[in-house]
Nucleic acid binder design. Structure first.
Length: 114
DNA sequence: GACATGACGTAAT
DNA sequence: TATTACGCCATGT
């Protein structure tokens, strides 16, 4: 899987860049906020290119996969990246329950209108 | 154009 | 709750 670096990706990056510390969003919501409902897969596709890059670039670790009942969990396939994501989030205050899931009622990011 | 692939999401089983 | 089945859509072969 390579990198298109298209305007599609930059649209997602702009949304991810707005997620504040200690908060998380899901692929579906990022796509929606970016004005592209149905592009959840592509959000992940675009973020995969960021893992391992700039530690202080985009907060890629703040995007998780959706789970039923307002919960979210790490969706990265690569175990290394997945572990890194969890550590990074815990360092900024995000809590994972016993099943490695995050309660979106508490840590979910709701973009403010503008 | 057909087919496979992928940090996804929702519904059904 | 865990699996499976589909739907989704840009890319690459």
């Amino acid at each position: 899987v390579k990198s298109p670096r298209s305007s599609l990706w930059t649209a997602f990056y702009r949304v991810v860049a707005r997620i504040p510390r200690g908060k998380v969003a899901t692929y579906g919501s990022v796509a929606l906020i970016a004005g592209r409902p149905g592009y959840a897969r592509h959000v992940g596709y675009a973020l995969a290119a960021l893992v391992g890059e700039k530690p202080r670039g985009l907060p890629w670790q703040r995007v998780l996969g959706s789970r039923p009942r307002m919960k979210a969990a790490v969706a990265i396939r690569d175990p290394i990246g997945a572990a890194l994501q969890r550590v990074l989030l815990e360092e900024e205050g995000v809590e994972f329950d016993a099943r490695a899931r995050v309660d979106l009622e508490r840590f979910g990011w709701l973009p403010r209108r503008r």
